[in-house]
């Protein structure tokens, strides 16, 4: 299963083992984990709530992975994204890409994250010491996605 949305945590070791098992053609494994910072825009963050759009989220992630498979010579790819209440230090998102060689694996991993940041229906609400605020999208994320 190439994409998952879940409230629980994930273990990168287990996920990589499951993704590569039985594929002796794999010569490179690239991965990315996004985690919750304790500060954003110079403000202390006590936690995050991640919302998504059930029904669309998995389909959007599936499309991103399918696009990565089309653009890069990779063997397989996995995306796990958490939703719900998280605290600083928690893992948010995991991308793993397997390939025969590192170039395509690195590129596909970065591509999946760049597209996920601008196309997958997730929204972060930050908890601050004195309230909450929705995170605003960054122009730099749009620019990163447009490179590809």
């Amino acid at each position: 299963m190439p994409v998952r949305v879940q409230t629980g945590d994930f273990d990168i070791g287990e996920e990589i083992a499951r993704l590569r098992v039985g594929d002796r053609g794999v010569g490179a494994i690239a991965s990315f984990i996004g985690t919750v910072r304790d500060v954003n825009d110079a403000t202390t963050i006590t936690g995050l709530t991640l919302e998504h759009y059930p029904g669309m989220t998995e389909a959007a992630l599936d499309e991103i992975v399918a696009e990565a498979r089309q653009r890069f010579d990779i063997r397989d790819a996995l995306v796990v994204h958490r939703v719900g209440a998280l605290v600083p230090g928690d893992q948010i998102v995991l991308v793993v890409v397997t390939g025969a060689h590192r170039g395509a694996a690195f590129d596909a991993c970065e591509f999946v994250m760049d597209w996920l940041k601008t196309r997958a229906p997730f929204w972060k609400k930050e908890r601050l010491p004195d309230g909450e605020r929705w995170v605003e999208a960054r122009a730099s994320d749009d620019e990163a996605a447009q490179r590809w």
Binding site: G34, Y53, I92, V93, P121, W123
Partner: peptide, 10 residues
């Protein structure tokens, strides 16, 4: 039809 702000996941 869903209407939403620019996404901020990842």
């Amino acid at each position: 039809v869903a209407i939403f702000p620019p996404v901020t996941g990842g």
